[in-house]
Design a protein around this nucleic acid. Structure first.
Lengths: 361, 361
DNA sequence: TTGAAAGCGCTAACAT
DNA sequence: ATGTTAGCGCTTTCAA
């Protein structure tokens, strides 16, 4: 950073204009160029640029000036090869459109910002083959660690992660065996918890609305936990519907309309995410349903958006930021540890938020 | 990919279990290991793994088997250093939370998927200093191209981009001089267009609600274009309010309430993004305002979410996916070109969508 | 069709 | 405090 800020200073003070004319922009500059321009050995230049070892203030200045004047940007590829160290952490997530994952990313960045590590994102679109491809691609850059969503991976992905020889943190989910470390919530438990709450509130005819994704294991686990607990209480899902693609808000609206037309006696709807929940909520309000008296509603995620809804939707926080922070923290600690760290598995507790769409008893 | 899929095959068929016992996961495997395991020179192994040059089918098979059995993942760092080529495209955007940028990313990925290029994302949080840092960091990995949001950069960033010696595409905005290529819309023109529409619809007392970000140049330009055209029509912004942070939907609601309390005679609100627009819309509906008769509303972006709203908000599409696709296309073409490509600047036309929140005349 | 040698640009480990 | 040497793991180039 020091290097960078001085460089910036230089440009802001106009020296750039001159130097840009002196060096052809074709061949990227090397340490050697800086070395020659400053009359100091490459090694010393390297030391200055990395703030390593003892360098006299005089040489330091000479080097910095030359480096800035030329507009030198170090070649990390060569550096990484020589030092066998790469300050990158691979972060592999299913999607950026989900809002959940940008928040996880924020948590990760917050922690990594205080280190010299940098997150690099890869997106899998919930496809195991793509996950495999992305993982392979990222591992071939020899990152210092991997943070990857979910516990379910193809055999090949699994093998790659086990053999990578770097810390691996599987995030979002803890319902299953982890390869190395893991941080997340139990989606099964989350489903159960909401089922308990709904039953406790006195609802009996419950509909489920969710995504069609057979590959969204976490949604599936929530569904399983949910039905399981209902069953224990002698209640069965009265109707269910799944969607894929399109605007979640619009889908929630449509599915709710369709389901209530089909099963008018439902008294509660459980949505697998807050966005479709919000759509359902808007639909019901427009059609003058009494919420939560006539019909109860619950979602999942605790997306910030909900604060702006006419009525606050009951939901459950998925601890996204916290998950990101903890995962990054584990990577940092593992890398700092002298002795090989033990695998850690951290289960966070999603907080239920009743909002105003479930009856209180 | 061929390499990868065969590798996968191997694991799925259980060979992994055995080999994982044979090689210690401590030292990453090298070409040499594969070479020794297959009794073929490193060079030939390299050829096979990259599908380069002529290799006999027999050797090819030997090498592939050895490679898969060991679980070899090539080291791109070494490869990049040797070949002086990196298949990475740096994509630098202000935020992932905005929904706009994930959509741009989708467009980019769609195009790059058919090539061997890979996007790598960096986030600046709308901060010029962070942009500088991220850019410096990314350039030090010697990517093949840069796609960066906006036309406004610090002097140092500007200098780095000019000197990088790789294709640069500035996206989202075309109101200003580009360094190399650019793809986007004119936000000034977008602001003007919506102003024209609002005036044409007969509104006279117009309020503006937007983000407080002085660094969101595109929002600023829309605002400028908007007021400019109003002025030409003898109309002045009657009230305005800016926010920062928090749930955009909730903010839209709050700001709308506050503004109408303060300026009850407003007959139209222009929101700088659809999310706050949706918040305002929900607030007004709940309070039984007649939309668009009593009060007109317009937003900006054309976010998919809007489809689920009770009334469709008037807005303007920012061509996000298209921008991403075109930007990536330019990078691909420039890299493929034998002779240095001319700089291209592509202005897309945002489509206005009247929805039901503006009067039709 | 295959192999051997010479780096790519940097840094670790030693000198000095 | 500074310099020298020897690679890092690949690919390029040239030879066989």
């Amino acid at each position: 950073m020091d290097n960078l800020s001085e460089w910036r200073y230089k440009y802001e003070n106009g020296n750039f204009g001159i130097t840009s004319l002196t060096n052809s922009p074709k061949r990227p500059l090397t340490l050697r160029d800086v070395s020659e321009a400053s009359g100091v050995s490459e090694m010393t230049v390297s030391r200055v640029l990395r703030n390593r070892g003892d360098v006299s203030e005089a040489t330091r200045e000479k080097v910095l000036n030359a480096s800035k004047a030329l507009g030198y940007v170090p070649n990390k590829i060569a550096g990484a090869l020589a030092s066998q160290r790469v300050n990158l952490v691979a972060v592999i997530i299913p999607s950026l459109g989900n809002m959940v994952f940008p928040e996880v990313m924020t948590g990760i960045s917050q922690v990594l910002e205080d280190t010299d590590l940098q997150p690099v994102v890869g997106v899998t679109d919930y496809l195991p083959e793509k996950e495999e491809k992305v993982l392979y691609e990222m591992l071939s850059w020899r990152p210092s660690g991997v943070i990857i969503a979910g516990l379910e991976h193809s055999d090949a992905s699994h093998a790659m992660l086990e053999n990578a020889g770097i810390p691996v943190v599987e995030i979002m989910d803890v319902d299953g065996p982890a390869i190395d470390h893991c941080v997340g919530i139990s989606h099964r438990r989350a489903g159960r918890k909401m089922a308990k709450q709904i039953v406790k509130s006195g609802y009996q005819n419950i509909g489920f609305l969710g995504t069609k994704m057979p590959l969204d294991h976490r949604a599936r686990k929530r569904f399983e936990g949910f039905t399981e607990t209902l069953a224990k209480n002698g209640v069965e899902i009265a109707d269910q519907e799944f969607y894929s693609g399109g605007s979640a808000l619009a889908k929630g609206r449509e599915m709710t309309a369709a389901m209530l037309k089909r099963s008018p006696n439902l008294d509660c709807l459980y949505f697998s995410n807050d966005m479709i929940g919000a759509g359902g909520l808007l639909y019901l309000l427009e059609n003058n349903y009494d919420i939560p008296g006539q019909i109860g509603l619950a979602g999942f995620n605790g997306v910030e958006m909900l604060d702006g809804l006419p009525i606050q939707l009951a939901t459950m926080d998925a601890c996204r930021n916290e998950i990101g922070q903890n995962a990054a923290q584990i990577i940092v600690e593992t890398l700092a540890a002298e002795t090989p760290m033990e695998s850690k598995c951290l289960e966070l507790s999603p907080k239920i938020s009743l909002g105003k769409t479930l009856k209180r008893r």
